[in-house]
Amino acid sequence: MTKTFMERAVDWGRRKSPWIIHFNAGACNGCDIEVVDALTPRFDLERLGMLQQGTPRHADVLVCTGAVTLQTRDRLKQIYNQMPEPKFVIAVGSCACSGGIFDGCYCINGGVDSVVPVDAYLPGCAARPEAIIDVVNKLLKKWEEKQKEE
């Protein structure tokens, strides 16, 4: 089935303005300040059309940091369920990828992928802003290829 002009225009719009929501599921703050850093003048992620949003209902990409604690687990599910389709999840930092240094602690559920499906993993303690830009770029390319296949 080929896409209509309007559908292709919507696809293009989505690809060029992926709005993000940032959620700290139990991180040490290191990755969080790096995510915000990526949005400020030196790195300026807004060049790729990214804008940080306050509510999951406006967001396309969930940027999740930290190992998921038992307290935030349900909240993470709730936030994921509130996001409109199509949606993507980026796990930023070693803790978000696998639980990292906190893996095995009594209050840790595991990495982000133990709760919601993850599209891109970004290891590092803390993940550098350059790496965050790179992962976003790769995610957008992957998205573009997927859209072409459809």
């Binding site: 700290n24 139990g26 604690t69 307290q71 935030t72 602690c105 209050c107």
Partner: peptide, 11 residues
């Protein structure tokens, strides 16, 4: 608070 409680002291 307590959403970030990871059990660090026990670890």
């Amino acid at each position: 608070v307590g959403y970030n409680h990871r059990g660090l002291e026990k670890a």
